[in-house]
């Protein structure tokens, strides 16, 4: 059984998803259900904090691809933070840095959302 845990926090208007453990085809549906909940509640500004994520396969990457456009169509986005090099390398292999913003720290990603919200 893959060890995976997902936690949702709200920081102002931004939702932070903490992912922990192993994100694969078995555990990806747990992450999908969090994104569905966010969309239901009209929370479109999302930061995914990868600090405790040990492993990701393409099933996990597919989740971000499936939801990012809905977030952007609603003036939101999915931004990534605190990623280990080994995990980032997988995103990089598939060309994600062209379409997604990666931040070293969660706060930097939140700040970017808050700056974009200003007139």
């Amino acid at each position: 059984m893959a060890d995976f845990n997902v936690n949702l926090r709200g920081i102002g208007s931004v939702s932070v998803i903490d992912v922990k453990g192993y994100l694969d085809a078995h555990t990806a549906p747990e992450l999908e259900s969090v994104f569905n909940k966010l969309i239901d509640e009209k929370n479109f500004k999302v930061v995914v904090n990868f600090d405790n994520l040990k492993y990701i396969s393409s099933a996990g990457l597919g989740v971000f691809m499936a939801y990012v456009e809905t977030m952007r169509e609603n003036q939101g986005d999915i931004k990534f933070s605190n990623m280990k090099e080994s995990v980032y390398n997988i995103f990089d292999l598939l060309g994600f840095p062209i379409l997604y913003e990666f931040y070293k720290e969660e706060n930097d990603a939140i700040t970017k959302f808050n700056e974009q919200g200003k007139p």
Binding site: S58, A59, M65, V68, L93, L94, F96, L99
Partner: peptide, 20 residues
């Protein structure tokens, strides 16, 4: 072979595994 920009435009998910 997947093209991330095309995937994004087409809202397509999957096919990434074989490429990886």
């Amino acid at each position: 072979e997947p093209d991330i920009v095309e995937y994004y435009k087409q809202k397509k998910v999957g096919g990434l595994g074989i490429y990886l």
